[in-house]
Amino acid sequence: MLKDITIDQYFPGKSIVHRLDARFKIIITMIFIVMIFAADTIWSLMTGIAFMLLSYALTALKPSLMVKSLKPVVPVLVITAVLNMFFFEGEEIFRFAFISITDEGVKNAVFMLLRVVSLIVGSSVLTYTTSPVELTGAMEKLLSPLKIFKFPVHELAMMMTISLRFIPTLIEETEKIISAQKARGADFENGSLKERAAAIVPVLVPLFISAFRRAEELALAMECRCYRGGEGRTRMKQLKTGPADIASLVVSFFFLAAVFFIDRKMK
C-alpha cells in the first residue's frame, strides 16, 4: 500500500520537458499554480488545465501515471469536495433533513476538485521529469540570493536530496517492520482509534532507531568521499538555459495572461 505513493518519483526520459532547465520548470510550475488559483470562471480554469494537459502531453509519459499520482489523495479530494458542497450560501437545489446543497456549493466543490487535481498533476509533471538532484540543484540556484542573509541554502538542498533518496528505502523498511510486528501478533486493523494508534508505536520506534543508524553511516560515507559543505563544490549536470527554456516561459506567461483576460471578460 505504501509503495503506491508516487510523489517525488522521477521517470527518466528524453522528452522536451525532461530536457528543460530545472530552474525554468520550477518557475513555470509556480506560474501554473498562480494560474489555477487565480482562475475564477470555468473557462479560465479550463485554460489553466489545458496548459497542464499540454505540458503533460509533451513529457511523453503514459497517461496512466497521471491517475497514479492522484490515487493516494483520493480521500482528501472527496473530503474537500463534500465540505465545499455544504458550506456555501446560494440557491438551494437539494435538501435532506438539515443538509442543504446549494448551486454555489456545487460550483465551489467542482472548482476546488479541479484545482486540487490540476495542482497535483501539474506538480507531478515537474517531479516526474526532473531528477531529484537536478530539482534540488535548481532550488539551490533559485534560492542562492538568500545566502546574503546567511540562509543555509546548500545545506537545505543537500537535506532535500538525501530525504528524497531515502523515502523509498524507509518506506520499504516500514513495510518490513509492519510485517515483522504482524508476525508477532500485532493487530493494526482492528480496535478503537486509540488502540490502533498505540499499535503504531512498535513500528515507529524501530523505524526511528534504524533511521538514525542510517544517518550516521551515511554521514560517515559522505565524509569519506570528501564532502565538506557547499563551498568549492562543482556539479556534473550544469543548468543550461536555451531557447526552449525561454520559449516555454513565454508560453506559460501567455497562458497566465489568458487566464486573467478571460476572467475579466466573463465577469
Binding site: 538532484v133 536530496t161 553511516e217 551515511l218 560515507a221 568521499r225 564532502y227 568549492g232 563544490r233 562543482t234
Partner: peptide, 28 residues
C-alpha cells in the same frame, strides 16, 4: 562500507557516482 543502502547519497546512479568528484571541485 558494508551496507550498500547507507552509502548512496543521490537518487540517481550516475549522480551518486559523481558525488565525490563534485565535492572535490572537479570541472563538470
Amino acid at each position: 562500507f558494508q551496507n550498500p543502502d547507507n552509502q548512496i547519497v543521490a537518487a540517481v546512479v550516475e549522480e551518486d557516482v559523481a558525488f565525490g568528484l563534485e565535492n572535490t571541485g572537479v570541472p563538470p
